[in-house]
Simulated scan of single mutants.
Amino acid sequence: MADVLQHEAVLPLWDERPAGTPADLTPTIDERSKNLFRADRALTGIAEPSLTAWVPENPNGTSIIIAPGGSYRRVVLDKEGIEIAKALAPLGVTSFLLAYRLPGEGHTDRADAPLADAQRAMRLVRGHADEWGLNPDRIGFLGFSAAGHLGASLATGYDRTTYEEDKEAHVISARPDFVALVYPVVTMQDNGVHKGSRSALLGDNPTPQQKSDYSPEEHVSTDAPETFLVMADDAPSVSPANAVAFYTALHEAGVKAELHIFRDGGHGFGIEGAQDKPVAGWPNLLAEWMVQTGAMPSPSEMTLPTGLEETR
């Protein structure tokens, strides 16, 4: 591992393919955009999970692992990945874009594969924080849509044993210092569930025990990290009840949290897709929350959409 973190360096999470990964799994990128000048790529066939570093010009020591959504069936690379990292860079935040295993692609540890990758990613960043010039106490996790479920699962199950590891590595905590969930899938219970994400994670006929075990709102403890949540009330696929349920559980456990539900915005808006809608202000709210919670020092510029425009 390099002593100095390189911009756009790809960091494998595991020394070799995780056990139980299908031998014939091959990475595939599908371009879904109908606009020649705006990419909308989706990655499948993730056999070798990784982090891709996005290092700002003036790092402030804060880092965040960005997990794009995709119904646990794909990883959306642009609007919930690189677009977000570019927007955070002017604030001094070092981003790590997470390509995590997709549970429905034949992995033997299906339901735990994404969480194992998220835990490993946290330990990798924290374990190398000093040599990369990062603060090991200011590492966050930002999850979109189905990866909102992954973020909530990490917030409540960061200490679960999901993979075999040497004792030295397991000493490193996988707990995020802060969590942000954007239009998140959370519950696996019938009321409010996003069925596509649940079937990808647990199969078509999960048991009542599985539904409970993989519903993060049922496992919130006082040790959960502070959390920021944002949704749009008119989301057609993922009910705002998901974010509300997780916020309520955090509040009842005494964990500070902030919840924003906007009148309009739909689902999957990212940053560019939120423009000219009430929900467009969510990136600035996130930045302000990060400063207020001590997740990052106050930057000279707090307008994230403007920073994004400058990177086009």
Rank of each mutant, 00 (worst) to 15 (best):
E165C: 10
I46W: 00
E80I: 02
I65Q: 02
A180L: 05
E164N: 09
E272W: 02
A146I: 07
A67Y: 03
H260I: 05
A249R: 03
E310P: 00
P240V: 08
G294T: 09
I66V: 15
Q189E: 15
R175K: 15
S71I: 00
V182Q: 03
G45Q: 00
E309K: 15
H128V: 01
D264R: 15
I172T: 15
T207P: 04
L201D: 02
Q189T: 06
S71F: 06
A87E: 02
K34V: 10
R41L: 00
D190N: 14
V4Y: 01
G151K: 10
S199N: 14
G143A: 06
E272V: 14
N60F: 00
P136F: 06
V10K: 12
A224Y: 02
A118L: 04
P103G: 01
A224C: 13
F141K: 08
S300M: 08
S197V: 06
T52N: 04
G70V: 06
A169M: 11
S221G: 12
W54A: 14
A99Q: 12
D213T: 12
A224T: 14
R312V: 09
L77K: 13
P240D: 07
A121S: 14
G92H: 02
M290E: 02
A87C: 05
L150F: 08
L77I: 11
R198A: 09
K256E: 14
L5D: 04
M302Q: 15
W282T: 10
L142K: 09
A180P: 03
S300A: 15
S199P: 00
R17G: 01
L25K: 00
L51P: 06
A235R: 03
S153G: 14
D112I: 11
L11W: 12
L5P: 01
M122E: 09
A53R: 06
D30V: 13
H219G: 07
Y183K: 10
A152C: 00
T62L: 05
V75Y: 03
A53M: 09
Q275G: 09
L25R: 00
D130F: 01
Y183A: 08
M290D: 02
N60H: 00
K86M: 11
P305W: 02
R312Q: 12
T44A: 00
K34G: 15
G20P: 03
P283M: 05
S50D: 07
A243K: 03
R138S: 13
V255R: 08
V55I: 14
A99C: 07
Y183E: 10
N60T: 11
D234K: 12
D78H: 12
G254Y: 01
G143K: 07
R17W: 11
E226Q: 15
S95I: 05
H219E: 05
S199H: 13
H251R: 15
D166G: 10
W132V: 10
V182N: 06
A9R: 13
P49D: 10
L88I: 05
S63W: 01
P56K: 03
L5A: 05
N205K: 15
A113F: 03
